[in-house]
């Protein structure tokens, strides 16, 4: 019964859009992280925790 109620709302478009948006974002991020010259930046960034600033004591 309730599924019939909800069939009145043609809302499957919502999750469909959501899924497409997510796929696009995901693919974009994956391509983005492999962009040219990214290795140098990422090496630099991944070392941030290991460098706390110069302790002058």
């Amino acid at each position: 019964m309730k599924s019939q109620v909800f069939e009145n709302f043609d809302l499957t478009i919502l999750p469909t859009i959501g899924m497409i948006v997510f796929l696009v974002v995901f693919l974009f991020v994956v391509i983005w992280v492999f962009r040219k010259n990214s290795k140098k930046i990422y090496t630099e960034m991944s070392n941030i925790p290991l460098n706390e600033g110069n302790n002058n004591e």
Binding site: F26, V29, V30, V33, Y42, S46
Partner: peptide, 9 residues
């Protein structure tokens, strides 16, 4: 680090 970015988003 690349994986961590994909992980995050």
């Amino acid at each position: 680090y690349r994986l961590s970015i994909v992980h995050f988003w």
